[in-house]
Amino acid sequence: MEIKTASDICTLNIKQIETIAADVRRARITLSHLADDLIDHICCEVESELGKGKSFEEAYRDIMQKAGRKRLNEIQEDTQFLIDKNYRIMKMTMKITGNVSLAMLGLATVMRLFHWPGANVVLVLGFIVLALIFFPAAIWANQRETKIRLTRSLHSLILVGGILLMAGVLFKVMHWPGAGIVMFSGWIIVILLFLPLLLYAKLMEAETGNQRLMAWSGIGGLMIAQMSTMFKTFHWPGANILMIVGAILLISIFLPVYTGVKLKETGRVTGSVIFVHLLAVYLVMLTFLLAINISEADNTVLFPERENPNEIVQANTELISRTHDLVLPGLP
């Protein structure tokens, strides 16, 4: 049986092929010859639709929508999942330990609030599962999906920095000695090594001015926000100013640009846009929580070990008035 494909009649020009190839590359398809497979396949389908009298844009959009439930990088994940046994194991480990550690941490928080015995054991176990099993497995799986060397060093940096930060928080919560130095080294790695390298990588792959602005404001904002958290934790001066600058960068520059760029790329609101917005809401809430007055009663529940919970109220009142003076000088 001879197959008569429409591609014999209509063929795409080089510019059109390049459009499709660029989209496949943007999806970071790096697995052996999968990119060639997909580019040729999509081109063939578009050519067949062109034969029916559609325009290139129309045909391309229709085909991507038809296959669209599975995005291109999901196809790569499916392939990786089928051919790589270790990858399968890691993904399963991630799913299980991710859920287990979250459940344990949540449980520990409740137990601690109600002063039930054993809260600390559950908390430490949850942290160990999260930091030493889930986190490395997640990074390992991501590593498998990429072949770029820069991304690999990024992965190892965030692995070390992340574990140190998580350990630091644990030490702090458990009142173990050395929390400060552990957290400090984690922050140094994240702020001075990981984020600048990430910024460099993002700037390298940025194609438009908006993408560059997105990288600068997003990663710059993150760096400043992280610094403000660090300053705040160590009670260094300037934390509040840093927090305001970081928040402004993230919320009023990065967020609109990011939403615009993503909308332009995909033509719809994607899951990652919703995720970033949720994250922003969370950040804003956290900042607000830091700034509002926590009632005395709440303080005795949340910080039972403090002798004088009113310290926090005083500190917060002071913080708010200083922030107020900074933002709106001269106003009551």
Binding site: S7, I17, S32, L34, D37, K70, I75, D78
Partner: peptide
């Protein structure tokens, strides 16, 4: 294409199929 390429790559990994590349219509 979301369905067949993962399977084709799996078959290649298992040594059941082999691939060769050729240029056709500029790709």
């Amino acid at each position: 294409f979301g369905a067949i390429y993962p399977v084709l790559h799996k078959l290649e990994k298992d040594g059941l199929v082999k691939t060769e590349s050729a240029v056709a219509n500029n790709r």
